[in-house]
């Protein structure tokens, strides 16, 4: 079974012949960008960030990469706000999307 993977990571299964015998996954959910779920955007304020990486630790997606400072991957962040709530240094601002 050799699936055709498109450039955006989605799997090309258009014809019956492209399908496996049973529903067996052929690609990663990584191709599913969840940015559109977000109504608020976490913004890490570098000056206040102490590099504790708690935001990285608590992200359910995961959509934060550890770093100096950590980076929010806005392709996937769903805007749940856990990182904002858990940051012990109040270093993540919440910005409304689409303002």
């Amino acid at each position: 079974m050799k699936p055709k993977i498109r450039k955006d990571g989605t799997v090309a299964v258009e014809k019956t012949g492209d399908l496996p015998d049973m529903p067996v996954s052929m690609g990663s959910m990584k191709s599913n960008k969840t940015a559109s779920w977000r109504s608020i955007r976490p913004v890490i304020v570098e000056a206040r960030c102490k590099r504790c990486m708690i935001c990285w630790k608590v992200c359910p997606e995961p959509a934060i990469r550890p770093g100096d400072p950590p980076v929010v991957d806005l392709d996937y962040c769903k805007g749940c706000g856990i990182c904002i709530a858990e940051c012990p240094f109040d270093a993540i601002d919440s910005e409304k999307e689409g303002k």
Binding site: N32, T34, R51, P66, D68, I82
Partner: peptide, 29 residues
């Protein structure tokens, strides 16, 4: 300049279909 208290490798990929703030997604991660 930072220390991680959990293994760094992410096996769970983002893009999954958990609700915002899902505890079950965190558990799996």
């Amino acid at each position: 300049p930072f220390r991680l208290t959990l293994p760094e490798e992410e096996i769970l990929s983002p893009g999954h279909l958990a609700c915002q703030g899902c505890g079950a997604a965190m558990a799996m991660r």
